[in-house]
Design a protein around this nucleic acid. Structure first.
Lengths: 149, 149
DNA sequence: TATAATTCCTAGTAAATTACTCGGTTATAC
DNA sequence: GTATAACCGAGTAATTTACTAGGAATTATA
């Protein structure tokens, strides 16, 4: 039940992008340097984020990425689901399309447990916006979005 | 962010044990048959459950397992943590002893997100008792704890 | 127009984790 | 004594994760 590095690094990268995109686009190279990650791996994360329409990109020199919407309108849930897929604890209660749902038409008792866990997680992550993380960050005014955990 | 089969099978097995232990001990063999699992694999799950003192065992013929306490006093959280370890989404906010905590003494912004997810999950699973699952099961009066998801 | 910076795309791969199986040992009811 | 069960440790195939590698497409700038 651990998040993968996709979710962990990806959320940090999104926060980095939000904090540093005040003037124009932010290159993966600069994010990679600040966060201590490889550009190649970040590319994969940003491909998922772009597919989910959370970011926009421009190619070529001076190109890079920007948020597709204002940070108040982007939730941690949006970001994590773009990177990790559904955060449901089992496939049988995953809201992702194509997930292998339970073939059991009758109710199975433990399923209600998995549903409650899923809803509990979603309730948390859908109610934290990227803006709140930015606020936390500027309030602490340190730049410790960069630790590797 | 998926539960492993340990948590999924293990919770079902505990429910099976609770439902079927009205008279004496329940053998792994009978649980394995009802749930369609191998005895060998169940042994491993029950070793964890026993270590966590959620069940008791007796060896030899007519031996088997019993709950160590009444179902009202055993939570889904107790069971899942015994089987999966901490359900924290990252090691840096794991409450398990020996987990590799974050070496970052300063606060890192995303950590508060992981803490909230962890607390959200724990809040759900610590507030469902095994007794409630038994009640659900007998209310539905089907025996569909046996599906494989 | 050439160059360099950048995103974009696909494939490969080493390491770690998961989900088991296998073979034996010990305890005990009958 | 024998059969039935829990107990124990090691091994392994399959899957997933966490990347790396290498190139193609786009475009600002000199």
């Amino acid at each position: 039940m651990k998040l993968s590095t996709k979710g962990r690094y990806g959320l940090k990268a999104m926060l980095d992008l939000a904090v540093n995109s005040t003037d124009g686009h932010v290159s993966l190279n600069s994010i990679a340097e600040r966060q201590g990650l490889s550009v190649n791996y970040l590319e994969q994360l940003f491909a998922s984020l772009k597919k989910a329409k959370l970011i926009k990109s421009i190619r070529g020199p001076q190109g890079g990425y920007m948020l597709a919407d204002s940070p108040e309108n982007i939730s941690v849930g949006d970001i994590l689901r773009a990177l990790e897929g559904s955060l449901a604890p089992t496939d049988c209660v995953s809201e992702a399309p194509g997930a292998r749902r339970c073939d059991n038409l009758d109710r199975c008792v433990t399923r209600s447990v998995w549903e409650k866990i899923r809803d509990g997680i979603n309730n948390v992550i859908d109610n934290i916006t990227l803006q709140e993380l930015i606020d936390d960050h500027t309030r602490n005014n340190n730049s410790k979005i960069m630790d590797n955990t």
